[in-house]
Simulated assay, not measured.
Amino acid sequence: MSKERKAEKIILDTDPGIDDAMAILFAMNCPDIELLAISTVFGNASLQNTTRNALFIKNKFDSTFDVVSGAEKPLKKTPNGPTDHVHGIGGLGIVEASDSHHLPISTPSWEYMADRVRADPNEITLVAIGPLTNLALLVEKSPEVVPLVKKVVIMGGAFGENGHRGNVSPVAEANIHDDPLAADIVFGAEWPVTIIGLDVTHEVLCTDRYLEKIRDSAGPSGEFIYQVTRFYVDFYQQSIGKRACFLHDPTALTFLVSPELFELREGPVRVVTEGCAEGMTIQKIETKPYSYDDWQQRPNQSVAIAVDSQKVLELFSNTVRHE
């Protein structure tokens, strides 16, 4: 970390999850990030399992971040259920999370985030790499905190750039589809949001050889990343025909420390909350008004539309190796 730059204080809202676990390891090892807390949410696994997985990682790597448990279901819709076929029964593939001597903080996630932001206004970034229910609850229950948040970075959504649309439906990405109403609330709040969606994460493909090099050079972190990705790589081999996986959630963390690797586009964002296009994210990029325009009164947000994928891969591997 350069002397001129302070570490980015973050609360990581997540549903670990294989690529979530990789993102946690990146945040723990990155000198430009100060990981204050992990806030858990349903998604890749049940809330019970995502919280257990976060505590397991904290214990395994002797970390000091807080763990706080959040929402166990969407705001309104019927839950989609865990994605066992992608992340395994417990959420970490073939790695079984043992119980930790650590316990989650008893405060609800949204309340914990509100308290931390009030105590350190304009200094804390919220990074959400799962369904956005916890952040939506924060907006609804503590709206006065919203302008005190430094910024929000989201892994989610798909806008059709670079030929990438949905991964759970033809138009919807999984995190947004898990709670589209929550996403629409978060994107409409008066705080600066950057959305790192499939448009760029589907450009960042790490091969099994890449993961082997991390295993062989990054000590306990590398061994953990390799083991936890075994199930993930098997899934993607069936899905895309390659022994590889996309670096979804860690890519959002790399944006925090190297935003110059991304090209952003500005404009308000809406989310389709029901029907066959449920979870679809749509950004208005024209400035002209329309007769029917549900985007017009919404704040501009940033959507990543291009990425230097090779440099993202280098940043991730170098960080977990402490280079």
Rank of each mutant, 00 (worst) to 15 (best):
P131M: 13
L126F: 12
P74G: 05
I94C: 04
P192K: 07
H164I: 02
T281F: 03
E96N: 12
F42Y: 14
S302Q: 15
L25P: 05
N53R: 10
L247S: 04
F224A: 10
D62L: 03
K60R: 15
A45K: 11
D66L: 01
V269E: 02
A306E: 11
E8D: 09
P299D: 12
D308T: 08
P220W: 06
P74I: 11
Y292A: 11
S221F: 12
D199K: 04
I154F: 08
I154R: 06
C206I: 15
P259E: 05
I185A: 00
M1T: 04
N162Y: 11
E144M: 10
N175D: 10
A128S: 15
I11E: 01
K242C: 06
A218D: 13
V307L: 04
A45G: 14
S100K: 01
G156W: 03
L126V: 11
G70I: 14
V149L: 12
V271E: 11
E263D: 13
P299L: 02
K242Q: 15
M1A: 11
Y226A: 13
L12W: 07
V193T: 10
P104L: 03
M113F: 11
S63N: 05
V145W: 09
K9F: 00
G197K: 05
T78F: 00
L12V: 01
N53C: 05
W191C: 14
D249H: 00
K76P: 01
E223S: 08
V117T: 09
E263S: 13
D32R: 10
L148C: 02
E140F: 01
Y210P: 05
I240K: 07
L103T: 14
A45D: 15
A277N: 13
A158H: 06
R243P: 03
R116D: 00
F316W: 10
V86F: 07
L36M: 14
P82Q: 14
H101A: 00
I24E: 08
T319M: 07
F26V: 02
V320S: 06
S291P: 01
K3W: 00
T125N: 01
D294W: 08
V186S: 04
A23E: 02
Q301M: 04
T207P: 07
A97E: 10
D293C: 07
S258P: 05
A252G: 06
S302D: 08
A189I: 02
T273S: 08
T51N: 01
V139M: 10
H202P: 04
